[in-house]
Amino acid sequence: MATVVYRVGDDVSTDVIYPGRFMATVLPNETPQFAFADDTAFNGKLQAGQFPAGSVLLAGHNFGCGSSREQAVSCLKGHELVIVARSFARIFLQNAINLGLRVVACPGIEANVGDDLKLSEAGIVNTSTGRVYAVVPLPQSRQAIIDAGGLIAYTRKRLMSLGA
């Protein structure tokens, strides 16, 4: 079961997810400490390890708009969060798939902090309210990358087949 641990609104930018002043930090094992750095309460809980792996960050439309910085994905992946949003900005979605951050686009989702969600390809069930919501499948064009386990593995395979 995936519990909603935090809720944000529409148009949350990568400047908010991973503030620019930490951009010199790039390593995926170092970026998680700066996830939502300017939201001290949420950042504090993340850093304290209060949320089990698979906890849900619930967002509105256009989550991850703005800068292409990949740290905004790696910092969330480090905390093993699942991002359920009404919609995602293009570059963020692409980066999430490339790095293997779990993202679910669910345009009609309604849930509160503390609600338990059952996630599946067929849809999302909010078990706290009993309501069911349709999900938008990830871009089919990226399926091969998802299947390979991310873009690094995908490209490595492609290179090997070129070399052979």
Partner: peptide
């Protein structure tokens, strides 16, 4: 168009942007 760092690494290796809609 803008891409992330991992996607760029893939472009550096392959010379193409893969699976673009």
């Amino acid at each position: 168009f803008g891409i992330g760092a991992t996607e760029m690494a893939s472009v550096w290796a392959l010379g193409a942007a893969v699976n673009i809609e």
